[in-house]
Design a protein around this nucleic acid. Structure first.
Lengths: 152, 152
DNA sequence: ATTGAAACTGCAACATT
DNA sequence: AATGTTGCAGTTTCAAT
């Protein structure tokens, strides 16, 4: 899909000021509201903008623990990937799933109310996932995203 | 912050149908539009809802490669963390930064236009980051998020 | 919780460059 | 082919009740 400088300016503004009204975004990006609207529409259709998502702070909601788990799967089994992913998806506390090319096959992010709760989820719902060959875990401390310095 | 069942229902609906109009969300959550509005306002103030973000598909924008890099830092140096994070933040191609408790200290997600471009960024901007003791890299294939089965 | 008024948004038709 | 102008129905915001 064709994306020009104006589109990039709009995207940059959308990321920098996510809650701004469309009229304000148009002004910041230096286009009229109608033009902005048409371009956003095009970017949506072209798949560049997937949608607008509410960003939830799980910690504020009382889920104090987030753990990042890496898995290597049993490659011998032909359906290992599919079965593992399907099972992981069904665990409510798994809030993110990524697949990779490399030593590690899958990464899951898991949330829990506290460490005791995490242990519970870990034993009952993570270790029971099928086709795990190896895994390791890291406790997430903080996430930083830079909406200022992006390659747009 | 105090979050009741109605709040949770609203959050669930917001995650399940991010682009739905507020009026529709109100109906789905079984509250009036005014009530929905007040509750969303409260959840924002309480920090549970951080904001609404445009989700960008970097691949559709022409950034075909995304790599997840894990770093262990030189613990000897007292400012290693701060200096590493500051430097990482200044790299436009670094689109996500997370810090951990565990063997690995930091994870960066880096995007590039193609593999050649990635090699360039890797040599010029990643390997030059200060205080790296160890690192490993994984190429991201796909991200799956489950808005259906969340612990709400 | 309901009503209502003002502001804003999504979308379309048409003229303009 | 993309932009700006205008217009309007529908939605959101927010205060009064």
């Amino acid at each position: 899909m064709q994306v020009d400088d104006v589109d990039r300016r709009i995207l940059r503004q959308m990321l920098a000021a996510p809650d701004a009204a469309r009229a304000e975004l148009a002004e910041r990006a230096g286009v009229t509201a109608a033009s902005l609207w048409r371009r956003i529409e095009r970017l949506r259709e072209g798949g560049v903008i997937r949608g607008e998502e509410a960003v939830i702070d799980w910690r504020a909601l009382g889920w104090a623990v987030e753990v990042s788990l890496r898995f290597t799967l049993e490659k011998a089994h032909p359906r290992a990937f599919d079965e593992f992913l399907e099972a992981a998806r069904a665990v409510p506390e798994v809030i993110e799933i990524q697949t990779f090319l490399g030593l590690t096959d899958v990464r899951l992010n898991v949330i829990a109310r506290d460490m005791a709760h995490y242990q519970e989820i870990y034993r009952a719902r993570i270790l029971t996932l099928p086709h795990i060959a190896e895994m390791d875990a890291l406790m997430l401390i903080s996430t930083l995203k830079d909406s200022e310095a992006l390659p747009l």
